[in-house]
């Protein structure tokens, strides 16, 4: 690893990941009373590490409240982290000021779940797309408009749509515009936060195809957040599974989904409905209970109160990520750490 003290030039570190997140923490204070005393913390993100390579898609999955959207906002520095490091292209961005961040922002963009509500209804599509170009001082006027037309073409719409308003488009078309806007500044990383979740099935497939086409053509990296595990599995090269602010398992997408090593990933994978074309009749594995609140996480392993395989050590000691297979797989589970000295037969 490069020395953390030096500001590394991207060209100088070939093969380095585009984004490197290390021990990222975000605690939100819980305040109470007139003086807004801090009475506790919501540990939304509690020590998360992962990397995204150039041209790679990393899927982030987990139940609501697991911290995946907070991670998305932290890596884009839409939120400041409590602790930890976020390196983009070898450069530390966790401590940068808003002013220092501005030139970096063109490299990292986000696509939201509901594009229509993220557009100003009184702005034409042309203004929606050229706004980031002007904000970044990349281009303006006719030049920016030409770029907007080019972008619409790229996402399967047409330059004829430039003077229309957001409400004139269907949900799928609006999401294409959201993607065009995010691509305006030629970013290298696109964060897709539930970007296809609100779309109809027939249209969702179109947008997934578009995202993959753009990745091949433009060499984009994606951080892809979605609650639909089949969607994440289809689009991702690697998957990180989050639970209560921690990544409890990560590795190549197929391996994680077909041969999960963490009991939580196993229950998550088991909770996916079967392919409907088999005709149904199969029931899913049902895991009991719900994810506890991140303001009052359990001791030890965050999953132990719901885990069918938990043993005494799980309630006292937080499991560290352990190697769990090829392709840099890790899983944070004491079951992977069973040795003659500390282990006991559990399975």
């Amino acid at each position: 690893m490069a020395s953390p003290a030096t500001q590394v030039d991207p060209a100088a570190t070939p093969g380095a990941p585009l984004m490197e997140v290390t021990d990222l923490v975000k605690h939100f204070p819980i305040t109470k009373g007139l003086l807004r005393r801090t009475v506790g913390h919501v540990r939304a993100v509690d020590g998360v590490s992962f990397t995204i390579g150039a041209g790679e898609t990393v899927g982030l999955v987990g139940e609501s409240g697991s911290g995946k959207s907070t991670v998305a906002r932290l890596v884009l520095r839409l939120l400041g982290p409590t602790a930890g490091s976020v390196k983009f292209d070898g450069r530390e961005i966790a401590g940068l000021s808003q002013r220092e961040l501005t030139p970096l922002r063109r490299n990292m963009q986000i696509v939201f779940q509901d594009p229509v509500s993220s557009f100003d209804p009184r702005m034409t599509i042309s203004s929606v797309i050229t706004e980031p170009l002007e904000a970044q001082g990349i281009s303006s006027g006719k030049q920016a408009r030409d770029r907007a037309a080019e972008l619409l073409d790229l996402v399967g719409l047409s330059g004829r749509d430039l003077d229309k308003y957001p409400h004139q488009f269907s949900g799928g078309q609006a999401q294409r515009i959201g993607i065009a806007r995010a691509l305006a500044t030629n970013p290298r990383l696109l964060v897709c936060d539930e970007a296809v979740s609100a779309l109809d099935v027939s249209v969702q497939a179109q947008v997934l195809n578009l995202l993959r086409k753009l990745q091949v053509e433009l060499g984009l990296s994606y951080l892809f957040i979605a609650h639909d595990l089949n969607v994440v599995r289809y689009i991702s090269d690697r998957i990180c599974v989050m639970y209560l602010g921690r990544i409890i398992e990560q590795g190549p997408a197929e391996a994680v989904m077909t041969d999960p090593q963490h009991p939580y990933t196993r229950t998550l994978a088991g909770a996916i409905a079967a392919d409907p074309r088999t005709g149904g009749g199969t029931r899913r594995v049902v895991v009991r209970g719900e994810m506890p609140s991140p303001s009052n996480p359990p001791s030890g392993c965050p999953f132990h109160p719901r885990c069918p395989q938990a043993f005494d050590r799980c309630s006292t000691e937080v499991p560290a990520p352990l190697p769990a297979g090829e392709g840099g797989r890790t899983a944070s589970c004491h079951l992977l750490d069973i040795t003659p000295t500390n282990g006991k037969a559990v399975r």
Partner: peptide, 25 residues
């Protein structure tokens, strides 16, 4: 048939596009 085909499922081949239905509802 087209709706069922458009859903990503565990066996969806990653090297292929999803068979999307063109256009919008």
């Amino acid at each position: 048939a087209a709706l069922l085909a458009a859903i990503p499922h565990p066996d969806s081949a990653k090297e292929r596009q999803l068979p999307a239905i063109p256009g919008a509802v």
